[in-house]
Design a protein around this nucleic acid. Structure first.
Lengths: 193, 193
DNA sequence: GTCTATACCTCGATAGAC
DNA sequence: GTCTATCGAGGTATAGAC
């Protein structure tokens, strides 16, 4: 039963290395070394690097939604959910400044490195956007909800790009701050209703 | 005098390939083939790939500001300059959907592939941000100008990420549209003055 | 399941003939 | 200036002993 243990350790290690160094720049040998095994062993659990990537994107998506739902009651209001998204983003400021948004950078890299693999990454972005759209949709007409979800996600994806480019975590904090004010102005009519 | 000709052709080819396939994914042999020469010849003009990158980022920055100033009179108002930025971005919608923003994706890639080279890319982003800040600064207090420049650039960088992830140029058009409305609301007090 | 060895490939860079 | 040949490093993936 050592097998499942190793599988898990490979996934955790690759999850970290793919986001820190990128998919292309991370070799099987790197993953094996950091996970305390040899590369032949990694290949035993994941036949190809692309197959490993699929598991990693799956794990990333689960991690993201776990963070969104963490500390949020099941009957949280839309405003609370959206605020939670801002908090999670804000809490990632240091990470964004160091390595960028794990989802956004992967979408970007795979789009050039191997377009066939890009869907695995953009799927996560799409899921997040749908979640945001759902939250806005609880308060606003569908069209406005779609518009606002796209706007908010774009704003924070851009913040991650810039924070990474400048290695400046405060930039994320400032963009979240502006987003929070914007969010209030959007929802103000619903709040006082 | 064939020399300068070849130099220029290498730069133009690399400019295109770096943005279409990324820096890491573009080999010297690729550049040579597309430029109609052999890789030994590319190495003759640019000793290392990193040296070539420096020239490419320089060319990219010049191209960007050329587009910003194109068709803009020297005494254009701040509002006209900012509108020009939106127009240039909108005109890049198809490119963004295909390969992402050439500047943003390069910042992102180099941040992971080779952090020592990242400054060459983020320099361009910074220059653009400074230009935006200058335009806002002609109408608003310094603090607001800084805030708005960062906000606008983040919004459109994020739009590029998402448009690339989804291969959807319309997303850029929608984000520019929203940015345009936002811009009017920001500058409305100056307009009517 | 684990580890070693290796086949096979691509790349950046260089040396040297022309 | 141009082209060929090649070196050495580093990568994925696999075969096979243990």
């Amino acid at each position: 039963m050592k097998g499942e243990d190793n599988r898990q350790r490979i996934i955790e290690t690759a999850l970290r290395l793919f986001s820190e160094n990128g998919y292309a720049e991370t070799s099987i040998a790197d993953i094996a070394a950091q996970a305390g095994m040899l590369k032949g062993n990694v290949s035993y659990y994941f036949k190809t690097k692309a197959e490993l990537l699929q598991w990693i994107t799956q794990a990333r998506e689960e991690q993201l939604f776990r963070r969104l739902h963490d500390g949020l009651s099941p009957d949280a209001t839309a405003h609370e959910c959206l605020e939670q998204f801002l908090r999670v983003t804000e809490a990632s400021a240091e990470e964004f400044a160091r390595v960028g948004c794990p989802v956004g950078t992967l979408c970007s890299e795979l789009g050039k490195e191997d377009p066939a693999l890009q869907p695995y990454a953009s799927r996560i972005l799409k899921a997040l956007q749908s979640w945001l759209e759902h939250q806005f949709g609880r308060l606003l007409p569908a069209e406005a909800a779609s518009e606002h979800a796209e706007h908010l996600l774009a704003l924070l994806q851009g913040a991650a790009i810039m924070a990474h480019a400048y290695h400046d975590p405060d930039l994320v904090v400032r963009r979240v701050h502006t987003a929070r004010i914007w969010l209030r102005s959007i929802l103000i009519h619903e709040e006082i209703r």
